[in-house]
Design a protein around this nucleic acid. Structure first.
Length: 273
DNA sequence: TCTATTTCCTGTCGGC
DNA sequence: TGCCGACAGGAAATAG
């Protein structure tokens, strides 16, 4: 399940493989992946566009083309692969970008949850998917004050707030649990109940964990791999996610698993208060 | 305005 | 062995 660190590594891999190549045409095998515009327009407008660069914002991949930006969200299991056209398609290939080199940039997605939008280059920042995103989890953008302001009137759980892309862009279920464990904060705590000391610690741990995860190439739980098919290694650093019933690394209390905001939530009932 | 719930999807796993 | 239900979950849409 790609979160920011995984998407960042996908971006790096793809940049080496497709930059400066031209999209001759696109084949859409599962139309629901294309959110906007309508599939027919998507196909006609992307034809002939060159891939100038690839950027990332939160968990979104941005393929910067001549006149458009292709915004892609991998959601749960979306993947990009670059293959020679002679390589047979797999069952879960849904969109094929045929390049001028004879290669194909293929979008694969077992659960068909991923979404793509093709938007006018000068209207990218206005697109609803990007317009409401909060700051990136790096110290130049994410300040203690921004988190304090966001949480100041929140009646819902801190876990739900961490998953809200308006507070910080790029955090998903795995890292939300890991961050709260590092900060010693119970995931069910109400957002506005956090003290200024806790908010400072949370701010530090958000940046720290996301940076380390990026450096590790992301986390491979089930099926994530980057554009080269390589897996990440941050799963070796996980302290609570997927560890229900095993001993807490700090106090040996069994890790608990509950459901918060419809998400599996792992925490140490002794360390997190 | 804010929060909670539902929807989209299919492979995997546990229970019988 | 095979069937069935539960589960995994990000973001958008919908409901309250």
């Amino acid at each position: 399940m790609p979160e920011l660190p995984e998407v960042e590594n996908v971006k790096k891999g793809l940049k080496e493989l497709v930059i400066n190549k031209q999209i001759k045409y696109v084949t859409v095998l599962w139309g629901n992946i294309v959110k906007d515009p309508i599939v027919e327009t998507f196909i006609s407008e992307i034809k002939g566009q060159r891939i100038i660069t690839i950027e990332r914002r939160g968990k979104f991949l941005l393929f910067v083309l001549d006149d458009y930006v292709l915004i892609s969200h991998l959601r749960m299991e979306g993947k990009f692969r670059v293959e020679q056209s002679s390589v047979p398609l797999t069952k879960h290939t849904h969109i094929i970008f045929t390049l001028d080199t004879g290669e194909e940039l293929r979008y694969l997605d077992v659960r068909k949850f991923g979404r793509m939008s093709l938007v006018d280059k000068n209207r990218v920042s206005l697109h609803p998917s990007l317009a409401s995103l909060g700051p990136e989890p790096v110290c130049e953008e994410l300040t203690v004050e921004k988190i304090r302001l966001f949480l100041s009137n929140k009646k819902r759980s801190i876990k739900s707030c961490l998953l809200d892309q308006k507070m910080v862009a790029g955090i998903g279920n795995i890292y939300a649990d890991e961050i709260l464990f590092a900060s010693g904060i119970h995931p069910a705590r109400i957002g506005e109940s956090l003290t200024s000391t806790e908010i400072s610690k949370l701010h530090h741990d958000i940046i720290d964990i996301m940076e380390k995860a990026v450096a590790s190439g992301g986390t491979t739980i089930r099926t994530y791999s980057n554009a080269y098919g390589r897996e990440g290694s941050f799963q070796q650093n996980l302290k609570v996610y997927g560890k229900a019933g095993t001993a807490c690394v700090n106090c040996q209390t069994p890790i608990n698993k509950i459901k918060i905001a419809q998400r599996g939530t792992h925490f140490c009932p002794n360390c997190q208060i």
